[in-house]
Design a protein around this nucleic acid. Sequence first.
DNA 1: CTTGACTCTGTGCTATACCCCAGAGTGTAA
DNA 2: TTACACTCTGGGGTATAGCACAGAGTCAAG
Lengths: 138, 138
Amino acid sequence: MTKNNPPLTIGRLAKAANVNIETIRHYQRKGLIVEPEKPLGGFRHYPDTSVDRIRFVKRAQQLGFSLEEIKQLLTLGDQHCGDVQSLAKEKRNEIQQKIAGLLTIQAALDDLISTCHTDDTTHCGFIDGLSQKGFLEK
Amino acid sequence: MTKNNPPLTIGRLAKAANVNIETIRHYQRKGLIVEPEKPLGGFRHYPDTSVDRIRFVKRAQQLGFSLEEIKQLLTLGDQHCGDVQSLAKEKRNEIQQKIAGLLTIQAALDDLISTCHTDDTTHCGFIDGLSQKGFLEK
DNA sequence: CTTGACTCTGTGCTATACCCCAGAGTGTAA
DNA sequence: TTACACTCTGGGGTATAGCACAGAGTCAAG
């Protein structure tokens, strides 16, 4: 009843997820999305969920994750139980650190926006917060 | 009184900021940090502020900014007034979007961590939040 | 059953963000 | 004043994240 749409080939998937076809192939090679079986001399059909998955990857990239890290996040979402708990917690903390960093920059920008209208050399501590030791120290 | 330290040459700067020397040279070429004048047949001396500046760059990178974007942020911090207001606001909004995205993932991870102890196939909507249209739509 | 749009496989090219190295010069501690 | 560690300049190499394209195959509308 909801399945009379044309099959989701790679080109249609690319269009739906708003990425280049080659990007999808790249993600397949890297193991971020599964390449469906090829029906012996035909074109591959992708599940609808692939669209969201690819969008997720693009979003996560903009948030500073590498494809390798995103792969881990996706694996978490897929396997989703057992001993992945600790990895989930680790990732959660990484994300919390990122949020803290962004809030720091945001606060500095807010300062910048509100305090200096046309007055000049009150030098905003733009860098100060983020460059402190202890933040995201590795 | 507080200036009897050895001069901050590139090697010492690199050590202080915990980056490779070549990274500093790279940032100079890209215009993220100013290359000090070379004292005619000698070694360059860097201001102490360079340390924080480089650390800021590294932090910002981990938060998903490219060097080009970080350069803009730094310019904001340097010039810091006049008509950069609008750019600051733009950046502020970008950051807010990033924070929202990270909070979404974090919430999903929290779900994952708390709800599935040993129970299995309740599939967490890990991807759902982030892949929605409207989030960071470009 | 032809034709045009699409897919498949493989290879190669691009941009970003670095790292490494050679060969020449420089600084400084012994 | 001589080692030797460091710097400078220039060039090349690497990993990541793709994009582009060729040549062959496939699908489907007319």
